[in-house]
Design a protein around this nucleic acid. Structure first.
Lengths: 337, 337
DNA sequence: CTGTTAGCGCTTTCAC
DNA sequence: GTGAAAGCGCTAACAG
């Protein structure tokens, strides 16, 4: 219970000397004749009245609440995504219910169930659980990146394929001859799998032999990278590759540290391009951890909000891809002017 | 509107062949005789019934929703705080309404007003706006760090004074002779101001002359640091200080980059200790940006939740301080064993 | 145009 | 113990 005696629409009506219906109309912006409207507005101000969202929600079956299901807000990419989602929702008069479901499918399902029956008007999900079967058909939902084969759910993602191509193109442009790809992926299918396709496509186009590490993400990632590195050392200690496209900035940064530990120079000996565009301390003006293919997080979030709130669900594309861009982050040779 | 025809308590009652009151009791865990209880539970499962939170909220004036007002989730400290708040709330059956109010007092006040009248059961606020006057007296609210002189609001914070002392103690322990303090603070009073007191206290204790930069945080911070650095250079290029206690890790990291740009070695020439304990990519196992006095973010969040949900508001301490700890982050000389 | 009123789904007396 | 019914605050349909 928040306020014991919050004024109700009745109090306002009494104060203003009008009927509740009139007050309701004023509140909801319906046309009300001038002397009445003014009296009501005065009464509202005087009593400091605010609509009770529960009563309204009960009546309208609408909450103006959107649930965001996300693994966590610790990861800087998710954190930025959540921030921009909140911003876009607020602009449209919606509030954000935040659900961090990290590694807990039960928690995701619990939010999904709650959402299905009531409480929220829609869901934006960035999830790595297998929740396909728990998604109600008639609930507005938009997913980021993930693909569910058992439901037709509108998806929003970055153009990962182009991003994969772009990473290779950039590495070649900066002088690399042998770019490798280091990938640690989720076990669930999603658009980010296309980074791999982009890499392969670009290699084929340039007549390069693809060479990559492709594993399920796990705590073993570091040791797998270490092994990969050892296997690509020539007897003289030099490496058989001179460019790395990392599946994420995080993995790129791990690999960067590994290379430096082993005495290799970045970007002189090896250049690295990651994916995501994570900035130190999160700030938009801060530097990147590694040169990167940046996802347009703000635009992605805005698009998710736009789609989840769309009037006509039938008009929503089943897949929306937004463009990525390359940005220098210290692990590539500077672009030639 | 979420689900058009979600089953109601009436449907369940009909299905089970009992009265709605009985169903309500089962739902709310009141005692109901066995054959009835079983029939009701079966009906609930069969219809996939879930309570309508609006109806319940309207009746009970309770939402099981707590609003978190925070500048943003981009800053890693805030992001972690939000994450742990969500975790603690979820464990207690509450949901989190996230409000990122960055630089927008109107938005904060709008959330505050909303919360005052209805909708949420309490507020946890980490704010740098002047909202003291908009806080209702009877709404459960807990603030992190901030001090409002016009309201008695329970506050939770890290033990910043001890943290300030600890930073100096550590710098001295690692061989520094002249630790300076670099502070960029908010214009609003809060517990983090005590870092300064801790620094001064430790200097006095060790007979050191305090030397510090103390400015309001702004985009000029970097150039102020640069100026500070120039002013502390001796003719031979060496510095008059050999240790830096930075008000935050962020500022510590800025100063680190500045020092390295100018050719000084960290930690050989100058050691740096920041404050907060921000980790790269946010992960609990990741490394710090700089050696730091770490705030116990998870515990701070848990404490805020505990207090905002406390049964008896009269029992809540007006100030709760949690201990900080030092952690190595590459910008100090390693501890001697 | 304004005023009256039913009823959204739930909880909680209060009879039984 | 269970069942019936009032009413939380709001909106919208309908009557005036």
């Amino acid at each position: 219970m928040t306020q014991k005696n919050a004024p109700t629409i009745k109090d306002v009506a009494r104060e203003a000397g009008v009927a509740v219906g009139t007050v309701s109309k004023v509140i909801n912006g319906r046309s009300v004749r001038e002397p009445y409207r003014r009296k009501v507005e005065e009464a509202i101000r005087k009593l400091n009245y605010e609509v009770n969202t529960y009563a309204r929600g009960l009546k309208l079956q609408k909450s103006n609440l959107i649930a965001l299901i996300i693994p966590n807000t610790i990861n800087p990419f998710f954190a930025a995504f959540a921030d921009y989602i909140e911003e876009a929702l607020y602009q449209r008069g919606y509030k954000l219910l935040l659900c961090c479901a990290d590694g807990d499918p039960d928690k995701e399902v619990s939010y999904l169930t709650m959402a299905t029956q009531n409480k929220v008007d829609g869901i934006i999900a960035l999830t790595y659980s297998d929740i396909g079967n728990d998604i109600a058909d008639d609930l507005p939902i938009v997913v980021f990146d993930r693909f569910f084969d058992n439901h037709v759910i509108p998806r929003v993602a970055s153009d990962n394929f182009s991003g994969g191509c772009l990473a290779v193109e950039k590495l070649l442009e900066f002088g690399c001859r042998h770019p490798v790809y280091i990938r640690f992926h989720s076990i669930f299918p999603g658009e980010s799998d296309k980074r791999r396709d982009g890499y392969l496509h670009a290699c084929r186009k340039h007549g390069l032999e693809p060479d990559f590490l492709d594993e399920v993400d796990s705590p073993e990632a570091l040791s797998m990278m270490r092994k990969f590195l050892q296997e690509h050392k020539r007897p003289d200690g030099s490496l058989t590759f001179d460019g790395v496209f990392a599946h994420t900035d995080y993995h790129g940064y791990m690999f960067l540290n590994l290379l430096r530990e082993e005495g290799y120079r970045v970007p002189e000996d090896v250049q690295i391009i990651g994916f995501d565009g994570i900035r130190k301390f999160g700030g938009e003006n801060e530097s990147l951890f590694v040169s990167s293919i940046c996802q347009p997080v703000r635009q992605l979030a805005a698009k998710c909000v736009e789609l989840v709130l769309a009037e006509d669900r039938a008009d929503i594309p089943s897949l929306t891809l937004l463009p990525v861009r390359y940005e220098y982050g210290g692990t590539t040779k500077k672009e030639k002017k």
